[in-house]
Design a protein around this nucleic acid. Structure first.
Length: 428
DNA sequence: TCTGGGGTCCTAGGACCC
DNA sequence: TCTGGGGTCCTAGGACCC
């Protein structure tokens, strides 16, 4: 089933969000830079200089305030429109180098190099790297190996060892084991904190020791997923390249609030906004949900305040992607889990039981044609919003920036996706 | 004061059916 | 009093990823 004569290249953008900010802002190229999570909460991307200052991944920004001041660290809010657009540019370049590309995340892609056996992989990797840098301004690291898991390992070395100049080919390397030995167990792709702890207790502390662990033992304790990781380290290809992303099985939209929310009305308003967003995502993949899950929670970090969290699953008596219906249903059900007197931090929605719009079955209270008509109507609104900007047409949208909206104090312009924010170059 | 958001897969156990 | 066995489906929870 799996082709064992493949070679994978994992192309990973270096410090991706920071690199995106730097493309359009040359002044910060040599400075320490960090990009924050939504709501300006935690550090999610760091430049090399910021890493050297000891700013950890995921650190809440308020814990770094001193370092930021002292070393003039440049801080940015997340600018997802910019990052998503830059990502698709990078992916477009990669597709010129292989017909088989899997976009693994916003900043990573696997390329299958099977068809290029005649080439020198390292040379080819260098060519990819140079082209991406030239055409998009984004620096990447490339790891090449016989399996995806090994390509991940190779990528680590490409990224860390300056002498490798961003490309490392582990394919058929006579000394593969010595490289595996250098990788800590928790840094192996697929082995998270829980399994690492368990393995370390058994004395298995690096990639090589794991590779040499008994397969049945691993299968028993780490399920088939761990077994696959093991086999992949041994060079046996178990994780397929996924060129066409499958439809999502659950679609979520939720945000932490810029400031706590107490009033039902405001909570409802925020939820309506997230439902609109999530329903857009549904329609984008032409899906209809059968259930809706809504949840609310107070700020769990604020232990001095009374805590409350609850959720409710709603089976849709009529499956639909029609936003107004979903909003009114959510409102009704939010009332069932809302308790007054709490300072809420977050509300959200997840659609599940997702089916393709064409597979909607007739029901007692609706006809599939009606569901499809509503779906098509909403898609027209989506097109208008696509063309003229989000919120051109919509439901329950507050007129001005609401009190609960995310704080994004350090947001850079949408350099590449909004006409009025395109950078201007002045020449003398 | 201030701590993100959005996914996937696997398994165990209960409900239900014949 | 005696009370099977095997299959399937669903769900909750736990692990992982970026």
């Amino acid at each position: 089933m799996f082709n064992q004569d493949q070679v994978f290249a994992l192309v990973d953008c270096n410090n991706f969000y920071v690199s995106c900010e730097r493309v359009f802002n040359p002044r910060i190229r040599d400075k320490p830079v960090v990009v924050l999570s939504n709501n300006d909460g935690c550090v999610v991307s760091r430049s090399e200089q910021a890493k050297q200052l000891g700013i950890g991944m995921g650190t809440p920004i308020f814990k770094c305030e001193q370092l930021i001041k002292k070393f003039d660290v440049q801080v940015f809010s997340s600018n997802y429109s910019l990052y998503a657009d830059m990502s698709s540019r990078v992916m477009d370049v990669l597709r010129k180098f292989s017909p088989q590309v899997e976009i693994y995340s916003i900043d990573e892609a696997f390329l299958c190099l099977e068809k290029f056996k005649q080439k020198d992989y390292r040379e080819y990797g260098e060519e990819i790297r140079e082209t991406v840098a030239k055409w998009t301004g984004i620096p990447v690291s490339i790891g090449i190996a016989e399996t995806k898991t090994l390509a991940k390992v190779a990528n680590r070395f490409a990224k860390r060892d300056v002498d490798l100049k961003g490309v490392f080919n582990l394919t058929g390397h006579p000394d593969q084991d010595s490289f595996l030995k250098q990788v800590e167990i928790e840094d192996i792709w697929g082995i998270g904190p829980k399994y690492s702890l368990m393995l370390r207790k058994k004395g298995i502390v690096d990639g090589l020791m794991f590779k040499n662990t008994d397969e049945n033992w691993v299968r028993e304790r780490m399920t088939v997923t761990g077994q696959k990781t093991l086999l992949e380290l041994r060079g046996k290809n178990c994780v397929e390249l996924e060129m066409i992303p499958p439809d999502k099985k659950g679609i979520t939209c939720s945000r932490s609030f810029g400031q706590p929310v107490e009033k039902f009305e405001l909570l409802q308003q925020a939820l309506a906004t997230y439902i609109s967003r999530a329903a857009e995502k549904l329609r984008k993949q032409d899906s209809i949900p059968l259930s809706m899950h809504i949840f609310i929670t107070t700020n769990r970090f604020n232990q001095d305040e009374p805590q409350y969290a609850n959720w409710i699953d709603i089976k849709l008596s009529k499956p639909t992607s029609y936003t107004p219906y979903l909003i009114s249903l959510a409102r009704e059900n939010l009332g069932k889990i809302y308790k007054s007197g709490y300072r809420y931090k977050k509300v959200g929605v997840t659609f599940t039981g997702i089916i393709p719009s064409k597979e909607v079955q007739p029901g007692f209270f609706y006809h599939p044609d009606d569901v499809l008509n509503d779906h098509r109507f909403m898609k027209i609104l989506d097109q208008i919003n696509d063309r003229w900007g989000r919120n051109t047409v919509g439901f329950s949208l507050p007129g001005k920036k609401p009190s609960w909206s995310m704080s994004q104090k350090k947001l850079s312009p949408k350099f590449t996706t909004a006409w009025d924010q395109i950078p201007v170059v002045y020449c003398d």
